[in-house]
């Protein structure tokens, strides 16, 4: 359940950045998930898959990097500029 809220936040961040950079396409998003963050990477992946339908992240490749901390960090976006 908690992963759905995080996925919603991630989509909002990606949409803001896409608008700022005037792009309609995000090829890849990199997320760092700490082992002690309480976030299940697989559950987050499923949540993002469901919620991203129709959003800027619909066809985006999700790259999850597992770390040893408590963070859940949107590390970077790979965008395509026209």
């Amino acid at each position: 359940m908690h992963e759905f809220s995080l996925a919603t936040e991630v989509i909002k961040i990606a949409e803001c950045e896409a608008e700022k950079h005037k792009t309609l396409s995000v090829s890849e998003i990199t997320i760092e998930v700490g082992n002690f963050s309480g976030v299940e990477a697989d559950a987050f992946k499923s949540a993002l898959g469901m919620l991203s339908e129709g959003s800027i992240l619909e066809k985006t490749r999700l790259h999850i990097v597992k770390t040893n901390g408590t963070e859940f960090r949107v590390k970077s976006l790979l965008i395509e500029e026209e």
Binding site: H21, T70, E71, R73, V74, K75, S76, L77, L78, E80
Partner: peptide
């Protein structure tokens, strides 16, 4: 042709 660009964000949502 399009150009790819990496946007570094480093936004820790929980923090």
């Amino acid at each position: 042709h399009s150009h790819k660009k990496i946007i570094d964000l480093d936004i820790d949502i929980l923090s």
